[in-house]
Amino acid sequence: MIMLSWPACVAAALAGVLLDRWLGEPRRWHPLVGFGRLATALADRLNHPNRPSHSERSALRQRLAGLLAWALLVLVPAAIAWWLIALAQAVHPALAWALHASALYAALGSRSLAQHIAPIADALTRDDLPAARELTARIVSRDTEDADAEALARAACESALENGNDAIFGALFWFLVGGAPAVIMFRLANTLDAMWGYRTPRWLMFGWAAARIDDLLNLVPARLTALSYALLGTTAQALRCWRTQARAWSSPNAGPVMAAGAGAVGVALGGGARYHGEWEERPPLGTGDTPAARHVHACLRLVQRTLWLWLGLAMLSVPLAALLGHAS
């Protein structure tokens, strides 16, 4: 049997999280780096937004090309993972279990999230704006050359809360649903959305499938993440921000996650930011204090508490499932 039993799945999830906490992301030969290069090469071959025709037929061709590229880059690796686990299961169930746990480790980014964002808060605490700008530019797409301390803290808080879902909880959710093939599918789909899911002339049509599929895959985990943030912070305020602010955000999943997270921490996020030289006024998120270094640390702590909440609930579900199974 390729799918793990529920106790084995929970044990593999715990193993994957602990591996991530212990090892962090690979310093060399990171699988997502190689995947990104492959995705870029394939997009260069298939994405041609500047060809003369701008008709509906041309737009449809670009969408279909993007969907084909998405299927090649996501469904093929997921199918290969399914096949490898089937082979491992035939050799020994423990080998298949190890592959499941390893796939989750490769998909998670809990430790790397803290390693990339905490130094921004440390630089802001030292009033070292040049270092904070450089560190922030590594993790966000907005311009940081002339950003002040408030803008940098805001960017770090938003990145921590949103990537808590994308790099941790979405991956964990899909792993618990379908093991290694499902978590590989989610993580690769999420990566393609980050690469192609822009509303620019180059990506609007070609990246349409990547953006929409990622929205669909994140529909449930994003709301579970938002609920978890709310329960572990200032609950009533977080729920109110989620209810009143999320719908105004351009992303149907980032909105609930960041609004609830900002409300839980008690910080005002959103607002204006500069992307590729163009000023963009974004809806408000959260409420309360102006972003500062302490809020960045608070957002990271909220993400980590949420991770242990999910693992704790998963582990508690094992004896409960056994009890219900015995009773039936």
Rank of each mutant, 00 (worst) to 15 (best):
I2C: 08
L4N: 11
L4F: 15
P7G: 11
A11R: 09
V17T: 08
L19V: 15
R21V: 08
W29R: 06
G36P: 03
D44Q: 05
R45D: 07
H54W: 03
E56C: 08
S58W: 00
G66E: 05
L72G: 13
V76E: 08
P77D: 00
W82T: 14
W82F: 08
W83A: 13
W83H: 15
L87K: 09
V91R: 06
H92C: 10
A96G: 12
W97F: 14
A101T: 14
A103F: 04
L104Q: 08
A106S: 10
G109C: 07
S110C: 05
L113D: 01
A114Y: 00
H116T: 06
D122N: 03
A123G: 02
L129I: 05
V140A: 09
S141F: 02
S141W: 01
S141H: 02
E145Y: 02
E145M: 11
E150V: 14
S159E: 03
S159F: 02
S159Q: 03
S159M: 03
L161M: 02
E162L: 13
N163K: 02
G164A: 10
D166Y: 07
F169K: 07
F173P: 05
F175Y: 00
V177A: 08
G178C: 00
A180S: 03
V183E: 01
A189L: 06
L192W: 09
P201M: 04
R202Y: 07
I213F: 00
I213P: 03
D214T: 05
L216G: 02
N218T: 11
P221D: 10
R223A: 10
L224Y: 02
S228H: 07
Y229R: 01
T235N: 12
T244P: 15
A246G: 15
S251D: 14
P252V: 12
A262T: 01
G270N: 02
G271W: 04
H276L: 10
W279D: 13
P283T: 09
T290C: 13
A293R: 04
H295P: 05
H297Q: 04
H297R: 15
C299S: 04
V303Y: 11
T306M: 11
T306L: 11
W308D: 10
W310C: 14
L311E: 04
L313N: 11
A314W: 08
V318F: 03
A327W: 03
